[in-house]
Computed example of a mutant assay.
Amino acid sequence: MSKRDYYEVLGVTRSATEDELKKAYRRCAMKHHPDRNPGDAAAEAAFKECKEAYEVLSDGGKRRMYDQHGHAAFEHGMGGGNAGPGFGGADMGDIFGDIFGNIFGGGARGGSRRGADVGYVMELDLEEAVAGVEKRIELPTLALCDECDGSGSEDGKRETCATCAGRGQVRMQRGIFTMQQTCPHCAGQGQIIAHPCSRCRGAGRVEDEKVLSVKIPAGVDSGDRIRLSGEGEAGPAGSPPGDLFVEVRVRPHDIFQRDGDDLHCEVPVRISQAALGSTVRVPTLGGEAEIRVPAETQTGKVFRLRDKGVKSVRSRAPGDLYCKVVVETPVNLTAEQRDLLERFEGTFTSDNARRHSPRSSTFIDGVKGFWDRMTSS
């Protein structure tokens, strides 16, 4: 299968700036990162594809070669031994960590013997997500055994593995080939526990429940993840612990819908308010505000309140609040109100009704044209 154009992969134009490339890579990587799509082979392939594209396009020399020769620039040794994506270029772990920082938890991992990472989903109200909040959480985990201080040994001692003589590797002869593999007896540690701890049975870890206080920064949104280094499961036999990843889920709000840094809401107004004009008070996350509804306002009219949206963790300025007017039909009318409306309706005639109802007139004209076309065909 032929490779996709790198600019297409990141969704940018060929004249994209370095900052635009970085933002595009961030969006692509966040969408397809394996931590957010466990077990999804297609997402993993897309993640690798956007990493490769960013590695080339973020390097001035490589980008010039790619613009001139396309993917062929990195085939058949063209451009030197280190020109191709994935060879001698930027460390993609460093790039990912630099872009995402602690909010996403990117970057290179430690050794294979570290403890497992733990995921936790935290649900927040919109107000909590916008203002920031500190929450206490409880989660089951594997903690260091306090009987052996995580060593797994009853007496704190270890012995050299007799199988690998402490090397952690053993040699296997396969015909004329000699291969090395991890020692099956000590799992590559080079040492064994002669007297396992009675509580953890040599594992160095026991099941426990951890209580933590997590500070959620202001402006987070659904899908944001916060890494707490070292708060995951304890590593086996005293090795380093994993990390805890707290993923934010913002509950639906009764009034507002969030779209990035902006908020949207519907504002109901009476027919008289829309027809005559009125000042209407609307809610915001910081209190009440006013919008001036001009006379003859129709349903669907949107009013913008600047800086009344959300200042996200990645923004320098807050977004806006968009208020959509919805003209309500009155209900539960009194006899007097019904009489007034009937008298009002009586003022409309076939001659003036179209002038007072612009949308209705447009609709009627459309229907008439439709039938004219149908009858003439």
Rank of each mutant, 00 (worst) to 15 (best):
G86S: 12
G86H: 07
F87V: 14
F87H: 09
F87I: 14
G88N: 02
G88Y: 06
D91Y: 03
D91F: 03
D91M: 04
D91G: 01
M92A: 04
G93A: 05
G93R: 08
G93T: 01
I95C: 04
F96P: 00
F96D: 15
F96N: 04
F96G: 02
G97A: 05
G97L: 03
D98M: 06
D98C: 10
I99D: 11
I99A: 13
F100H: 11
F100P: 02
G101Y: 02
G101I: 06
G101V: 09
N102S: 05
N102R: 11
I103D: 05
I103R: 01
F104H: 14
F104A: 12
G105S: 07
G105F: 08
G105M: 13
A108Q: 12
A108F: 07
A108W: 06
G110S: 05
G110L: 05
G111P: 06
G111S: 12
S112L: 12
S112R: 13
S112N: 13
R113Y: 08
R113S: 15
R113P: 00
R113K: 14
R113Q: 14
R114V: 12
R114P: 06
G115Y: 00
G115I: 02
G115W: 02
A116E: 12
D117N: 14
D117R: 01
D117C: 03
V118H: 06
V118T: 08
V118K: 07
V118F: 01
G119Y: 13
Y120S: 04
Y120F: 14
Y120Q: 04
V121E: 11
V121F: 11
M122W: 08
M122R: 15
M122I: 03
M122V: 15
M122S: 10
L124T: 04
D125H: 09
L126I: 10
L126T: 10
E127Q: 01
E127Y: 01
E127D: 06
E127K: 09
A129P: 02
A129R: 08
V130C: 01
A131L: 04
A131D: 07
A131K: 15
G132T: 01
G132Q: 03
G132D: 05
G132V: 11
G132K: 10
V133A: 06
V133G: 01
V133M: 00
E134L: 01
E134G: 07
K135Y: 06
K135G: 12
R136Y: 13
I137W: 09
I137Q: 04
I137P: 07
E138G: 15
E138L: 12
L139V: 12
P140E: 04
T141Y: 06
T141L: 09
T141V: 10
T141C: 07
T141Q: 03
L142S: 06
L142E: 08
L142R: 07
A143F: 13
A143G: 09
A143N: 05
A143H: 09
A143I: 03
L144T: 13
L144N: 02
L144W: 00
C145Y: 04
C145L: 05
C145K: 02
D146T: 00
D146R: 09
D146W: 04
E147H: 02
C148K: 00
